[in-house]
Each structure stands twice: as C-alpha cells, then as structure tokens.
Design a protein around this nucleic acid. Structure first.
Lengths: 158, 158
DNA sequence: TTTTCTGCAAACGGTTTGCATCGCT
DNA sequence: AGCGATGCAAACCGTTTGCAGAAAA
C-alpha cells in the first residue's frame, strides 16, 4: 500500500529463488552460476541496481576467466523468470535490479544519477479492460517508468 | 476523451510543423531535409509507423546518395521537438510515428505484428504529486506502453 | 565566399553466436 | 564417458562520429 518499497530483501529467500530458477532452466550446477547467484544476493540486499558490465567486472575479480557471455545468458534467464527487473532510463540505457517476487510495481528513476525507487502506482485494471474491448486487443503486459530528478541531484543542479 | 485516436492527420498542419522545427534548429534549408519532411507527411497521413531504416530505404529510392546519418540527425531533432514519438516494443526494438501536437497519449502495441494504437489512458496527476512528495523526486516525465495482441494476430495464432 | 550540412566510412557499445574445450553428473 | 555449459573471439546491429567535400546563403 505504501508507494515505496526500497531497500533490503531477505537473503535466504532470494538465494533460494535464484537456485530454483537455475535448477529449472539448466541441468548442471556450475561454479559461474553459483558466483552469479551469490553476487545477486548481495545486490538484492543492498537494493543496488547494476549493468551487465558491472556484474561481469565484479565477478572477474575473483574469477578472471569468467566469460561475458555467461553473464548475459544467466541474466536473461533471471529476467525471463522475473527475478530481475530491467529498468529503462530516459537516455536509452538500462540496468537491472533484483525485484523477484515483489508484487507488481514500477520504477521512478533519476535522470541525472540513475537512482531508482520502486513505486506501486499503476493504471486501474478497469481501464485495461475497457481499452481491450475498445481496441479489440488482448492486453497482456505494460511497462511504466517515471523520469525525474532526485533530491540530491536537484540540489546540486540548480 | 475517446481512448483511441488512430488514423490520418492533416497534411498541411504536419508539414508546417516539420518545417517550423527545421527552421528553428537549422540555418539551411536542404534537399535531404525537404525529402524527409515530405515522406513524414505521407506517413503521418496513413498513420504508419516506421524504423529509421525504413525511412532511409524509402528515400534512397529517389536519392541513392542520401546518407543514413542525415536521417538519424533529422529524426533526432524531430523526436526532441516531440513531433515524432518513439515507440518501444516488448522485444526491445523501437519504431517511430508522427504524433506531433496531439495531446498527451500512450501506445498499445501488438507483440506479434508490431501494430500500434494510440490510447489516452494515463496515471492520475494526483498520484504523481503524491509520489513526488513521498519520494522527494521531481517527476518530469513518464513512459507507458501496453503490450498485447491485436485481433488479427490472436485470430491467426490460436 | 563563407559556413552549414551532407555523405561516407570507420568507430562504437552493447549483445549474440559458433565453436572448441571444460567440467558436471 | 557423455553431453551441457563455459570462455573466447568474431560477428552483429543499430547508432554515432570525424572529416573532406558539396551546396545553401
């Protein structure tokens, strides 16, 4: 009910979810995927968002031979399983964040520093229904992102 | 008030708007830009959306030496001036369409055939205000896109 | 003639792919 | 041992950039 839900998530729950997704999608439990899972648990805890490159660079520190493609492949799986949310910024870039299992929500982003806040405003379901009838489309999903400036960036910008 | 506003726009009005934007942003009236304007007027009329490559290929038929970069540069101007809307599809691709001067609206897209319908549902302004207070962000814009399947694609898919 | 804009081609950045090899099971 | 996943490097694709030359003013 509160329009914000930023911040830490339960480590154990997240870890289990990630492993469950990997178990379902793959048939081998490999070291690279374990490393990715671990790092994501950390990122979930701190509520941090990240680019694929961020994640790769992080992991490369402990495993220099880890391949970029592996990170792409895992992130894709986790996005499809909606454990990760992809956040699109106004400038066309995008980042990811662990939002897995949270109720439906959207993102408010700072155009200057790329800070992200989860928000739970949305379109009224009746409107979707109405629109569906009117256009004769089935409406199966939507994306909503708000753009603005956070307090910090407004402060320093003016 | 109707949730749809598809279809033809007034040729003359659109043409004038495009020229006005070019006049404001550039200091030379050039042949390539005139060609782009003309093509966009046609596209506006038919309500068609297009990719940059579509536009380039079209124009190249009458002017084989026209450069891709020129098209990019003009489209960028027109998007910034919000004469063109950029429509992002669920699969990560995007296309453009002439929506210049229409009131605020969003897009309902068909995941299968990329058909686009303009819709005028939106978040209630009070919610933005509320959220702004709560998060201490200034909220300066938003993007909303609905994903689904149109009647045609549902028909043939099932 | 001057200066802007264009066309070209090369660079770019993020992402995907093909394939030999590695390492789970 | 067998086969799925990885690491690597090259390909890819849409977009941007630098620059010499073309064409508006």
């Amino acid at each position: 009910m509160t329009p914000m839900c930023r911040g830490g998530k339960d480590q154990l729950v997240i870890a289990e979810k990630i492993y469950a997704i990997f178990d379902q999608e793959c048939q081998r439990t490999t070291r690279p995927r374990r490393m990715i899972a671990d790092r994501l648990v950390q990122l979930a805890q701190s509520g941090q968002d990240f680019s694929i490159d961020d994640l790769w660079q992080d992991l490369r520190q402990q495993e220099p031979h880890l391949g970029r493609a592996t990170v792409y492949r895992s992130v894709e799986m986790l996005v499809n399983a909606s454990l990760l949310d992809r956040i699109d910024f106004a400038d066309g870039t995008h980042r990811y964040r662990v939002c897995g299992g949270d109720e439906h929500h959207h993102h408010l982003t700072c155009t200057a520093c790329h800070r992200v806040v989860d928000v739970d405003i949305c379109i009224a379901p009746e409107l979707f229904a109405q629109l569906s009838k009117l256009t004769n489309f089935s409406i199966e999903g939507h994306s909503l992102t708000l753009y603005g400036h956070c307090a910090v960036c407004r402060g320093s910008a003016s």
